[in-house]
Design a protein around this nucleic acid. Structure first.
Lengths: 334, 334
DNA sequence: TTGAAAGCGCTAACAG
DNA sequence: CTGTTAGCGCTTTCAA
C-alpha cells in the first residue's frame, strides 16, 4: 500500500474504499502512529495553530479571555500560541512577527497601551493572515474586533445607582486617552443627564486607578463635595481604595455611600461589603473572537467582511449598592 | 549565489566570508525575508517551541508561573504553546499528545488534580522529549521538577504566629491527598512541636478551602475551642472566610486572633486588615522550570541527570498577624 | 479506487 | 569559502 493511500485513508478521503480505510486506521492505532503536523503544515501552508497576543496574562481579565479562546480553538482542532506584549509596542510587534513567522493560521490581538503605530500590521494584512482584535481594538472598521460596550456598562451601573436613590454620584475615572475609560465616563455622564442630574466636575476625579489613586480620589471628592452619596469607579481596584476611605470616615455602605465598579474582579466578592461591578464577559469575548477568526480561516480572509462584535456588559448587583429589596441569587455569583 | 550559501550566511556560519554575509543580510532585510520556521523545524526535527500544560490559566498562581516561563523562553528564542487541562486527567493526556505531535522541543507540566495514571508520560520519555514538572509534580525523582517548599512555608508562618505571642493556633487545612496541603499541615504541626505546643485536633479543620469552607471552619473552631488566638490557613481564600467570622464575632485582628495564609493572592492587600501570607515565588518557579528544560534541550535529555529544585517560600508579614513593632516596608508589597 | 512522483522551504552532508 | 544534492514527512496533482 502506498503512502498516498495511507494519507488519504487517514484523512477520510471519499475515494478510498471503506475496507482500506479500516485497515489503515487499525494499523495506525496499533502502531500508535502520530502524523507529523509540522510536515503537513509545511505542505499545506497551514499550521493548525492560532496566535494570541495579550498585553499580559496575569490578572483576571486576559486570563479569562485566553481561557475562552483556548476552549473554542481546541474544540476546532487548533493549537494556541500565546505571547505577552507586556504593554510594550515593540514587544507586541515582535510577537506578531514571531507568530507570522510560525505560520499561524490566524492572529488574535489585544493592543498594548503603548501601541500608537499600527503600520506593522500591514504585513499581516498583506499576507492575508486572518486577524481579529479583542478588547483593545483599533477604531477602524476594516479589521474584525470583539469589544465590550463600555459605554453601556457605565450607563447601566449609574442608572442602577440613581434608581437606588443616589443623586450625588461621583466618578473615579481612568486615563481619558483610553477609549474604554472614556466610554465608561460617557456612560456615567449620559446616565446622569438621562435622569436630569447635572454632571458636576467636582464629582469627577481622573487617575491611573490604582488602589492608592482610589483612596486619594475619594478623600478629595469627600472634601470638596461632602454630599456624595455614591461612587461609580472605572475599575474595581480604585473602588476598593475608595471603600476604605468611606469606611474610615464612618460612613455606611450602601446607605450613606453606594459603590459600583467595573470588571467584576475576583475580590469583589471577598470584600465587606461585596462590591457591585460590571462584568466584562471575558470568556465570551475570547470565544467570540475565535469564532470570527475561524470564519475568516475557513471562508478565506478576503471573503469575509470585517465585523465588529460589541458584547453587552452585565451589571452584577451586590451589597455595596443594594439599598433595599432582595438580591437575586444569580447576581451574587462572582 | 546558492540557497545553501544564503542559508549559511543567515545562520552566521563560520565558513562564509564576511562580505557575502553582509550582502545576504542586506538583501534579506531589503526583501523583508522571513525564513520559514516550519520548514526549518521539519528539517531539523526541532520546532523551537516549548509546550506548557497547566491545570488552568485563570487564577493568580499559574498565570504568574506562565509569565515567568514566557519571559525566559522568549529570551532563549523559543515560542510557547499553552494548554489547559482544566484539572482533567484525560484532557491533560490529550494536551501532552498534542504537544508531542506538534514536535515541541520540551514540555513543562503541572499535573491536574485528577491525574492518577502517569503511564501516558512513558511515551514522552520514550521519544526523549525533555520534560519538567512544576508545582504539581510526581514524587518520583527520575523527572526534573521545580516545586515550592510547602512544608517550610507552613513552618515559617506558624513560627511567626508563635513569635507574635499566639499559643492556640488553629489550622484550616486542605485535602490531605494533595501533597502541598499535607506538607503545609506538617509544617504547621512541626512548628508547634518545635515550640513545645501540643498539636490539638480540635484546632484543626480540613476542607476544600473555599471561602465558605473558611467561614464554616472558623465557626466550628471558635465554638469548640474559644481560646483560639491565631489561624494558619492552607490558602488565602479560606482565610478571608475565617476573617469575616472573626470580625463578625467582634474579635480584633491581630490582637485577639492573628491570621496567616498561603499563596499571597492579589486580594491579600485589599482586605482590612491586609493578610499575612506565604509567597509561592510563582514567576521564579516558571523561570527555573524553563532553565532546567533548556538545559535538557541543549545538553540532550539523557545527558542531564533529573533534578529537583525546591524553592524557598517567602513569608510576607502584613497587618493580620503583626501584633507589634514596625512593618518592614518591603514586606508590605503584594 | 489506488499508485507514482513532485515538491512545500529549509539544512547538512559531501564535494569542490 | 561556496555549490550540489538529498531528504525531513506529508499532501496532492496526475496517471493508471
Amino acid at each position: 500500500m502506498s503512502v498516498s493511500t495511507v494519507s488519504r485513508a487517514l484523512s477520510d478521503h471519499s475515494r478510498i474504499s471503506d475496507a482500506t480505510k479500516k485497515r489503515v486506521w487499525e494499523l495506525a492505532r496499533a502502531l500508535n502512529y502520530q502524523p507529523n503536523q509540522l510536515a503537513a503544515a509545511l505542505r499545506k501552508g497551514r499550521s493548525n495553530t492560532l496566535g494570541v497576543v495579550v498585553p499580559h496574562i496575569d490578572g483576571q481579565f486576559f486570563a479569562l479571555v485566553v481561557k475562552g479562546i483556548e476552549t473554542i480553538a481546541n474544540q476546532a482542532g487548533f493549537n494556541v500560541m500565546i505571547c505577552q506584549s507586556n504593554e510594550d509596542a515593540a514587544q507586541e510587534q515582535k510577537n506578531v512577527e514571531t507568530l507570522v513567522n510560525a505560520q499561524v493560521d490566524g492572529i488574535l490581538l489585544s493592543l498594548s497601551l503603548s501601541t500608537h503605530d499600527y503600520r506593522y500590521l500591514e504585513d499581516v494584512r498583506r499576507r492575508d493572515i486572518p486577524l481579529v482584535f479583542f478588547d483593545r481594538a483599533l477604531e477602524s472598521t476594516d479589521v474584525s474586533a470583539v469589544v465590550l460596550d463600555d459605554y453601556l456598562g457605565g450607563y447601566e451601573a449609574v442608572c442602577h445607582l440613581i434608581e437606588q436613590g443616589c443623586r450625588h454620584i461621583a466618578h473615579l475615572g481612568g486615563p481619558q486617552h483610553l477609549n474604554i475609560c472614556r466610554n465608561r465616563y460617557q456612560g456615567y455622564a449620559d446616565a446622569l443627564r438621562h435622569y436630569n442630574i447635572p454632571v458636576d466636575d467636582n464629582l469627577v476625579h481622573f487617575s491611573d486607578l490604582s488602589m492608592q489613586d482610589g483612596r486619594q480620589g475619594m478623600e478629595l471628592l469627600l472634601s470638596q463635595a461632602p454630599q456624595v452619596d455614591a461612587v461609580f469607579s472605572c475599575n474595581d481596584l480604585a473602588l476598593v481604595g475608595a471603600m476604605q476611605i468611606v469606611k474610615r470616615r464612618g460612613l455606611r455602605i450602601p446607605q450613606d455611600v453606594a459603590l459600583a465598579g467595573f470588571s467584576n474582579e475576583l475580590f469583589d466578592s471577598l470584600t465587606e461589603p461585596m462590591l457591585t461591578s460590571v462584568d466584562q464577559r471575558c470568556e465570551e469575548m475570547g470565544r467570540t473572537a475565535v469564532q470570527l477568526l475561524l470564519e475568516m480561516i475557513h471562508e478565506g480572509v478576503s471573503k469575509v467582511a470585517p465585523r465588529q462584535v460589541v458584547l453587552q456588559p452585565k451589571l452584577l448587583i451586590r451589597e455595596s449598592s443594594q439599598r433595599s429589596g432582595v438580591l437575586l441569587p444569580n447576581q451574587m455569583a462572582s
